[in-house]
Nucleic acid binder design. Structure first.
Length: 781
DNA sequence: TTAACGACGCTAGTA
DNA sequence: GCGTCGTTAA
């Protein structure tokens, strides 16, 4: 019984009440910083300590990172306390659905097999474009993205392709809805033909199979008798439906969330799910966690004041025992460059001990810069570089979205599932095999005629009279190479297969164009090898690797151990906390974003986003707003965010911009009085005007400039550099990058970087190790 | 068939 | 400001 006590130790009364609910519906309304994660993990452990087998518990988190953290915390809690235990299933909706569908999808009898592939937004866009071409829908008239968006939201509402016309009745008739009616069913048909699912399908198909096959649903109801859902306010309709199906029998459903932190309605999330929980489950135990352990008093009060301007949502009284601390500082700056400079100087100042406050940051890692959109990062990055401040940036172009990475992955996808036409088209001429549109068209025609996938056509390519002999040979060789790899390496460790793909298809040679960017692309491909080693030990190495890379989010790669400032969007920062937080760009049209200008519900969502932003801060929070800003190549004038005037004056210190802006002193700025900002909304957003960007007069070479600054600085400039360092192709002892080696204690691995005599080797299961080539037990294989 | 060039549109946020 | 895409020249 010792363990039970321990699991409740150190919790406040409310937290304890939540943790000790062993069954039935439970709603935990957890304000920002109220110890939500702790409650979630301790409750899981508590259930297990009370005799509920771990494998009967399902916990759904919002990101893979959260899942990983939760698992390791549960392990820590129970290790030593229990002799043996089975781990609960912890994962995101998407990752859990992937696993369910690997087992069950064939039961749908739609032609899917368990080795289906996952299409990302890019893949599905390509497919949609092909369909539009075939259906002769003009891409200029109907935007692919718009179409994709509507199809996605239909799927999130569980509208199936066969009843799309009924669902679209509410939308009225337009060119767009007509297009959707035509395209959506065709899109689903082609996905089936490709044995592919898009992100929305992953959820939808699970609901479909559960609704169609009661025995399958029954199996999962028995398997997971206790279900917990984190960030419940961000669930959408399909996810809600899934949960209901799963728990309606045993009713053991615990959800945690905060309607004030619902910031994902743009992708279908509906915070009414959390508001209606008690209606859905009348017997629910409701626990409100309102004590905040994260932020000092002034920060919390400011956040509370901001969110109080929202009309929808539950009223909460978030309080803290912490002292008032520093006031939030609102600083006006000239433009985005000076904003970057200001933030960089503040950071430098704090690191040099020139702080005006009692709080002393322990390092760069205590600080974060959270912005509304990724495009804001550029000016800030440049300022940080100039000030030699190390940083890591989350988001922007994801590693797995880079072209070279997607190309290599497309090879693996084609090897894994030869029906994947999108993968086929991506790589059939990459590296170039001198195949053009004409050749591809012939293959497409043939595939269409005989109802085959594009790849299958290659097997009988000799029979196609329309192709010249030279093309036939090239195509057949390609086919033979892929077949050979399928035969030899399909079921082995994915690193081996990947190594051969990179080698045999001469990917590195192809990427080497002599430029710095070419070099960076090669490094990315090598990095992919080291990522792959993590999957080598799994049973179905290739499948789990492809799944893993399809479902990673940017935030999953956040490293809180390296001593760097963190840059990311406010969206990505949800669930995190930092002693010092900078919030740039609080101007109308930026934050709140211009799209919320005429929509009260969207404006409230922006306000919630502002609330999330401020509540990330523990000790210091600095907000900046610029008089003017370069956006999409144009200079825009902005007034201070309307949110600033909602923060009150007691807990906020306002500093106006002093001095002129480079040759722009004529600009008159309305000063903010003591009662805070009263700026009127005059921001004009370039997306709203149909103006044309004027061409830039000077073209700056970004790479050379970054390299120049990087040379002045020995700290890693970016994630890339931190990962790759300064690598050379081959060293004196004859080791080469990409080569497979064997180490006496670490086993087999792949060289991913060479720096003099020091090799960086990615070992399966061991991660990347630095090894001195001349004095280590290492040999080539 | 490919490389070079200019027009165009975008960026809100994401699994 | 920048990448993508389609057109054009070689």
């Amino acid at each position: 019984m010792q363990t039970l006590e321990q699991l409740l130790e150190g919790l406040n009364e409310k937290q304890r009440a939540a943790v000790s609910v062993l069954s039935g519906p439970l709603l935990i309304l957890a304000g920002a910083g109220s110890g939500k994660t702790r409650v979630l993990t301790n409750r899981t452990a508590y259930l297990m300590a009370n005799g509920i087998p771990g494998d009967q518990i399902l916990a759904v988190t919002f990101t893979n990172k959260a899942a990983k953290e939760m698992k390791s915390r549960i392990e820590q809690l129970l290790m030593g306390a229990m002799d043996s235990f089975r781990m609960p299933t912890v994962g995101t909706f998407h990752s859990i659905c992937v696993r369910i569908l690997r087992q069950e999808i064939e039961k749908l009898e739609q032609g899917y097999t368990s080795n289906y592939v996952i299409f990302d937004t890019d893949d599905s866009q390509k497919l949609l474009k092909m369909i539009m071409k075939d259906l002769q829908i003009d891409e200029k008239e109907i935007k692919v993205r718009g179409l994709q968006g509507i199809i996605s939201s239909l799927k999130n509402q569980l509208v199936f392709a066969h009843n799309v016309s009924g669902a679209l009745a509410d939308w009225g008739t337009s060119k767009l809805t007509e297009a959707v009616e035509q395209v959506y069913p065709e899109y689903q048909k082609r996905l089936r033909e490709h044995n592919a699912l898009d992100f929305d399908d992953l959820l939808m198909k699970v609901v479909e199979v559960w609704e169609k096959c009661p025995d399958v649903l029954e199996k999962y109801r028995n398997k997971w008798q206790h279900v917990m859902v984190d960030e419940y306010q961000d669930t959408n309709f399909v996810q809600y439906r899934m949960i209901r199906l799963l728990v309606d029998k045993h009713q053991n459903i615990g959800v945690v969330g905060d309607d004030h932190q619902s910031i994902y309605s743009f992708r279908g999330a509906d915070f009414r799910n959390i508001l209606d929980f008690e209606k859905d489950f009348p017997d629910a135990t409701v626990v409100k966690l309102e004590q905040n352990y994260r932020s000092s008093g002034n920060i919390l009060d400011t956040a509370n004041k901001l969110i109080s301007h929202n009309e929808t949502g539950r009223k909460k009284d978030l309080w803290t025992e912490a002292e008032k601390g520093e006031r939030i500082k609102v600083q006006e700056v000239w433009d985005e460059k000076m904003e970057g400079n200001y933030i960089a100087e503040q950071i430098k100042g704090m690191m040099n001990g020139e702080h005006e406050t009692d709080f002393v940051p322990k390092g760069y890692k205590d600080m974060a810069i959270l912005y509304r959109m990724n495009a804001q990062s550029r000016a800030i990055e440049e300022a940080l570089m100039r000030h030699q401040i190390p940083y890591q940036i989350i988001g922007g172009t994801r590693f797995f979205d880079r072209k070279e990475i997607k190309d290599v992955l497309a090879y693996l996808r084609l090897i894994f599932n030869s029906r994947d036409d999108v993968a086929f088209l991506r790589i059939i001429n990459v590296p170039t095999r001198k195949l053009g549109a004409a050749t591809i068209e012939v293959i497409k025609k043939y595939a269409n005629e005989y109802q085959m996938s594009l790849y299958e056509v290659l097997e009988a390519v000799e029979d196609i009279s329309e192709l010249p002999a030279s093309k036939k040979m090239v195509l057949k060789d390609f086919w033979k190479q892929i077949e050979m790899m399928k035969g030899k390496y399909l079921n082995g460790p994915v690193t081996i297969l990947l190594g051969y793909v990179i080698d045999d298809f001469k990917i590195l040679e192809y990427l080497d164009d002599g430029s710095g960017e070419g070099e960076a692309r090669q490094q990315n491909v090598r990095e992919l090898l080291s990522v792959a080693t993590r999957y080598d030990a799994t049973d179905d190495s290739l499948a789990s690797f492809l799944e893993g890379v399809a479902l990673v989010a940017d935030i999953d790669n956040h490293n809180k151990d390296t001593d760097t400032v963190t840059l990311m969007t406010v969206h990505a920062s949800k669930g995190l906390e930092f002693p010092v937080v900078f919030l740039p760009g609080w101007e109308d049209g930026m934050f709140p974003s211009s799209s919320s200008q005429f929509d009260a519900a969207q404006l409230e969502e922006e306000r919630r986003l502002g609330y999330v932003a401020i509540t990330r801060a523990e000790k210091l929070c600095g907000i900046t707003h610029a008089k003017q800003r370069m956006l999409f190549g144009r200079t825009e004038y902005g007034s201070p965010s309307k949110f600033l005037s909602e923060l009150g004056t007691d807990t906020v210190e306002v500093v106006e911009y002093q001095g002129g802006g480079e040759g722009r002193s004529g600009y008159q700025y309305r000063s903010a009085g003591r009662e805070g900002y009263k700026g009127k909304v005059t921001f004009s957003h370039p997306l709203m005007e149909k103006g044309k960007a004027k061409k830039g007069d000077t073209i700056r070479d970004k790479t050379s400039m970054s390299a120049e600054i990087a040379a002045m600085n020995n700290a890693p400039q970016s994630r890339e550099e931190a990962l790759f360092g300064d690598a050379h192709k081959e060293n004196d002892s004859g080791f080469g990058v990409g080569q497979r080696v064997k180490h006496a204690s670490f086993g087999e691995g792949t060289i991913i970087q060479i720096s003099g005599d020091v090799l960086s080797v990615a070992f399966a299961g061991e991660g990347v190790k630095k090894i001195v080539a001349s004095s280590s037990p290492i040999e080539k294989i």
